[in-house]
Design a protein around this nucleic acid. Structure first.
Length: 575
RNA sequence: UGGGCGAUCGUUCAAUGGUAGGACAGUGCCCUUUGGAGGCACUUAUCCAGGUUCGAAUCCUGGUCGCCCAGCCA
């Protein structure tokens, strides 16, 4: 299996109308640019952090496009910098790619190509295309020139092939300390493209690599490793993000000098989301400083974070497909992601009743000690999901928000004298309230209409509101974690004057409710189950959950038009 | 400021010289045993100035604005 996307053109769900990447590939296929070679792509993360929603776009494109053209995709770890890379990240990346719904043809590592890359470096030296430079990092930077000034040649640029060979071999043997020498490509110190001003190919790094251990003490740079790795894997279309566009001439230069398979690089725009930070470095900082609980904190934009939050791969794929691809740098509204997630969950999530902030509701004319079961649809969107029995009794919990002693305009829920429907159960009319010493309503007393069982009155009486409820005597207790945006600024990476991006953190991004009341069926919830707590939002079990203590995460709240009305009223001066 | 890339509704992606369209967001109405979902409708865009053409978002010229590049990171 290559990928679980849509090889079938009939299945248009994930098809965007058209995009420039698909057109390039289609053109290359019809012109037989690569002869009989199949379309080959690769997803090439560096294992130096966890994958995030931005990577989902690259994954979707790399795997999805290859699949569309009957091609294959490799997962390749770009592990050329041992100082930042770890096995933990290698593992998490594989887990996340699979979770998104993709499987790779081959699992590759740039480090597997170290011997070949080394041989090729020797070849370039012999051809006079590479040299060992003794300049310090600082000197190299100064010799490179600037954006507007040309660079100048290193005094070591014209060493003999023999001397370069000798020095490079000894670099590999470990005869020199870190930073003392580098191998550079001999290209053009006055090129307007800085990447072509004799770029470094190898640096000395006496560091232990997570896969090759201490076998190497010289490591190839990204530019020297990436194109050749593509070429080795016979990658036809090497898609990467826009910031690498300036590297393309160098990518081609190495391949041409070596005369190897002509992989081609194509750049597309990165995914940016409002209120979302997608910088690996800054996400790492949040984790290291304990600003979040870890890489999989449900507020994190990492795939492991949003997975824990309850997001689904189907929704993420649909979102990424719909957001499209281009070469502009824009920022997609986070609400678009949320829309696709709600849309997916609305179709699939089992409905349940849960009261987050309980208020006791007592039905005075319901016989004490009596209980009954009402039949409830598991998913009104999907009759095949069946029904379940939910216990009902004299004492219930309703949501605090669902009762107002003095109802504001347009408030349809329960208030003294008003009749509403308890979902799937009965009509009730509020009669009186009980208050604590501070004057807070702690109990609402009501009467019910026994003839309205199931939720309809035989006389055709209408009510304006339907509310969820949980039988007090049957309720199970749970902790609920409510999440809000991690940052309260559209572009969280933009630091305020004299501050840092941490100043943009939303102090209220996590709210924990410890005494939510759930209907009994929720007691058997499993990690992979998705629920809609009716009228509240989408929820799923958190891995912290135990048999003794249920913990649910709110994936997303339901759209709330009453909240909108309330907010508007407030804006108009509480009229 | 040298080089590269780009510019279409508020946002995002289409339209490949021939009716500027979809999605998200927003607004209004309808419907509803979730103030959810659904349905209908509405609002809003081709960066600017010239040119080519019967016809330009698209091609040409010149501007303007934005992003990226001066790691022995990727």
């Amino acid at each position: 299996m290559a990928a679980t996307t849509n090889a079938d053109p009939e299945n248009s769900e994930l098809r965007t109308p058209s995009n420039f990447l698909r057109e390039i590939i289609a053109e290359d296929v019809s012109s037989r640019k690569f002869g009989d070679a199949q379309i080959q792509t690769r997803f090439p993360p560096e294992p130096n952090g966890y994958l995030h929603i931005g990577h989902a776009k690259a994954i979707f494109l790399d795997f999805g496009l290859a699949d569309e053209f009957g091609g294959r995709t490799n997962l390749r770890f770009d592990d050329t910098n041992p100082e930042k890379e770890e096995q933990e990240y290698v593992d998490s990346i594989q887990r996340d790619v699979r979770w998104l719904g993709y499987d790779w043809e081959r699992l590759c590592y740039a480090s597997d190509y170290f011997p070949q890359l080394y041989e090729w470096a020797l070849q370039l030296i012999k051809n006079g295309k590479a040299y060992v430079d003794d300049l310090s990092a600082d000197e190299i930077r100064r010799y490179r020139g600037t954006l507007t000034e040309p660079g100048k040649d290193s005094p070591y640029r014209n060493r003999s092939v023999e001397e370069n060979l000798d020095l490079f071999v000894r670099m590999k043997k470990g005869e020199f300390p870190d930073g003392s020498r580098v191998l550079r490509a001999r290209i053009d110190m006055v090129s307007p493209n800085l990447n072509l001003r004799d770029p470094v190919m190898y640096r000395i790094l006496h560091a232990t690599h997570h896969r090759t251990g201490d076998e190497w003490c010289i490591y190839p740079m990204y530019d020297y490793a990436h194109g050749q790795s593509d070429s080795i894997e016979r990658v036809t279309h090497s898609m990467c993000t826009l910031e690498f566009a300036d590297h393309q001439p160098l990518y081609r230069w190495y391949i041409e000098q070596l005369g190897i398979f002509p992989s081609q690089q194509i750049e597309f725009d990165r995914l940016n989301l409002t209120y979302t930070l997608l910088s690996k470095r800054k996400l790492l900082q949040l984790v290291q400083e304990g600003r979040v609980r870890g890489w999989d904190d449900p507020r994190m934009p990492t795939l492991s974070g949003i997975r824990r939050r309850g997001f689904t791969p189907e929704a993420i794929r649909a979102f990424v497909a719909s957001a499209g691809v281009s070469r502009t740098n824009g920022i997609v509204d986070i609400e678009m992601l949320e829309h696709f997630q709600r849309d997916d969950l609305n179709r699939r999530a089992s409905r349940a009743m849960a009261v987050l902030r309980p208020l006791k509701l007592v039905i005075d004319n319901y016989p004490e000690g009596q209980q009954e079961f009402v039949e409830v649809a598991n998913n009104p969107e999907d009759p095949s999901a069946g029904t379940r029995q939910v216990p009902f009794s004299r004492e219930l919990y309703i949501e605090q928000d669902d009762f107002r002693e003095v109802p504001p305009p347009k408030y349809y829920r329960l208030s003294p004298g008003r009749e509403v429907r308890l979902r799937n159960a009965y009509f009730v009319t509020a009669q009186s309230v009980a208050k604590d010493a501070a004057g807070n309503v702690i109990e609402v007393h009501c009467t019910y209409d026994a003839a309205s069982r199931g939720g309809n009155s035989p006389d055709g009486r209408k009510v304006k509101s339907t509310m969820h409820w949980v039988s007090a005597g049957h309720a199970i207790l749970a902790e609920i974690r409510l999440y809000d945006k991690l940052f309260n600024k559209i572009s969280p990476g933009d630091a305020p004057e004299g501050g840092s991006f941490l100043d943009n953190l939303n102090p209220n991004s996590l709210e924990v409710i410890t005494d939510a009341k759930l209907e009994p069926s929720l007691g058997s919830a499993k990690l992979e189950d998705r629920y809609q707590f009716e009228r509240v939002g989408y929820f799923s079990l958190d891995p912290d959950s135990t048999a003794e203590k249920l913990i649910f995460n709110r994936t997303l709240a339901l759209k709330d038009s009453w909240a909108k009305i309330e907010k508007k009223a407030e804006a108009y001066g509480n009229s």
